[in-house]
Amino acid sequence: MSTASRDSSIIAHNLVKKYGSVTALDGLNLEVRAGTVLGLLGPNGAGKTTAVSILTTLVKPTSGSATVAGIDVLANPHEVRKRIGLSGQYAAVDEHLTATENLEMIGRLYGMNRRGAKTRAQELIERFRLTEAADRPLKTFSGGMRRRIDLAGALIADPPVLFLDEPTTGLDPVSRGELWDVIRDRVAQGTTVLLTTQYLEEADQLANQIVVIDHGRSIAEGTADELKRRIGGEHLDVHIERQDQFELTETILKGVASGPLRAHSGDGAFSAPVKNGVHALSQVLRELEAKNVAIIDIGLRRPTLDDVFVELTGHAAEESSNA
């Protein structure tokens, strides 16, 4: 018992989930050490939500096994549910209830007594700055506010393990930053977190360890720094005006690119991964000007999930979104 209650790790072994002929998970292995944050990074349809659904007992895998907080997910789902909090992509709150009513209800359903649920709901409402929603039905509030209440619901019973399925998808940058703060605060208190996201930056901000998945299997893992080093530092995007200067520009960019160059001849757009961004930018600019290439736009940007995918899989992220 004591080992089970102290162990807050998440382990998934060779998880497979098939829906008819569609394979949502294809042998996924995960290990989240107690008190750390694992970022599960991947495009829509990569299998992130399926993985979370299995680990939170909502879906049974076709094969494979998993333990959460030391408890077998398949053999003892009810015990697992006592130890986890789940906050999803779609804020699962009752929009006709107030924030207080929602949180108290969830607290009671975790088995807390009435007074305990009330006290804890008050605490979370203050900490999450939800006081204006405390006594008003949620349907009058923004998506960001509902998402925070959804997250507060996942935290009400103080679970040692937290599953956050794309917690900030669709939120504005301010709301996103606020949610990140809340999650960081939680992690500082020792909670184990499995976070799924489509945003590299989010995984970067929050996760100790990142697993990149595509087509239901892990294609890369490591710390944010390790992955970024594999992906390359920055990207140099160039947009030229004239078709007949396409090959010339391509040659110049190949000279500075640290990985495969993406080019679209139709609209004269290029994207090159580069190691030393500023240096590469000025070199390319000099060479293009020397050859009188008409530039519409040129600039440096940080790698996106798309870049990760091109690097790791050789195909663009959206290509796997039909899975």
């Binding site: 939170t56 007992t57 909502l58 009810h78 015990e79 549910r81 006592k82 986890i84 789940l86 999803g88 779609y90 804020a91 699962a92 709150v93 009752d94 929009e95 969830i106 359903l109 975790y110 088995g111 619901g153």
Partner: peptide
């Protein structure tokens, strides 16, 4: 439809409730 059943199912409550 609103995802509340998923929320309830992740909680340690009776499946009849």
């Amino acid at each position: 439809q609103k995802g509340l059943i998923n929320r309830f199912r992740s909680l340690p409550m009776s499946p009849y409730a």
